[in-house]
Computed example of a mutant assay.
Amino acid sequence: MNQNIQNLYQISSKSAKTIIGLMSGTSFDGLDIALCEFSGSGTDTKIKLRHFVTMQYTSDFKEELKFVFAKKTADLERITLLNAFIGTYYGELILQCLRDWKIEATDVDIIASHGQTIFHAPKHLHSVAGYPNATLQIGDADHLAVKTGIITLSDFRQKHIAAGGEGAPLALYGDYLIFSDPVENRIMLNIGGIANFTFLPAGQQGGCFSTDVGPGNTLMDQYVQLKFPGRYYDKNAEISSAGTVNEALLKALLDHPFFDAPFPKTTGPELFSMAYLLNAISKSGQPDISDQDVMATLALFSAQGIIHAITKCISNQKPYQIYLSGGGMYNPVLVRHLEERLGIELRSTETLGIYPDAKEAVLFALLANEALTGGKTNFGTLKNVPSVSMGKVSFPY
Rank of each mutant, 00 (worst) to 15 (best):
Q3V: 15
N4F: 12
Q10R: 15
S13L: 15
K17C: 12
F28H: 13
D29G: 09
L31C: 11
C36N: 04
T43I: 13
T45G: 05
I47N: 01
T54Q: 06
M55S: 15
Q56F: 13
F61R: 11
E63V: 14
K71L: 11
K72T: 14
L76M: 15
E77G: 14
I79F: 07
N83C: 12
A84G: 15
I86N: 06
G91W: 05
E92M: 13
Q96K: 15
C97Y: 07
D100F: 10
W101S: 08
D109Q: 06
I111C: 09
G115H: 04
V128Y: 11
N133R: 05
D140P: 09
A141Q: 08
H143M: 15
L144Y: 06
A145Q: 10
K147W: 07
K147M: 13
G149Q: 04
I150R: 02
T152Y: 03
H160I: 11
I161V: 12
A162D: 11
G165A: 09
G165E: 05
G165Q: 05
L170H: 06
L177C: 04
I178W: 06
I178C: 05
P182A: 09
I187V: 07
I187A: 02
N190L: 00
I191T: 00
G192A: 03
G193D: 02
F199R: 07
L200F: 01
P201I: 04
G203W: 04
G214A: 03
L219M: 07
M220N: 00
M220Y: 00
D221K: 03
V224I: 14
Q225K: 14
K227E: 14
P229F: 10
E238V: 13
I239L: 08
S240F: 00
S241T: 09
G243W: 00
T244P: 06
A248L: 15
A248V: 13
L249W: 03
A252C: 10
L253D: 05
F259T: 04
F263C: 11
P269A: 11
L271K: 09
A275C: 13
K283F: 13
P287L: 10
P287T: 07
S290Y: 06
S290G: 10
V294T: 08
M295L: 14
A296Y: 01
I307Y: 05
Q317F: 13
K318F: 14
Y320F: 10
Y320K: 00
L334M: 02
V335I: 07
R336D: 08
L338K: 00
E339S: 03
I344Y: 03
T349D: 04
L352S: 08
D357S: 08
K359W: 00
E370D: 03
V385M: 06
S394E: 07
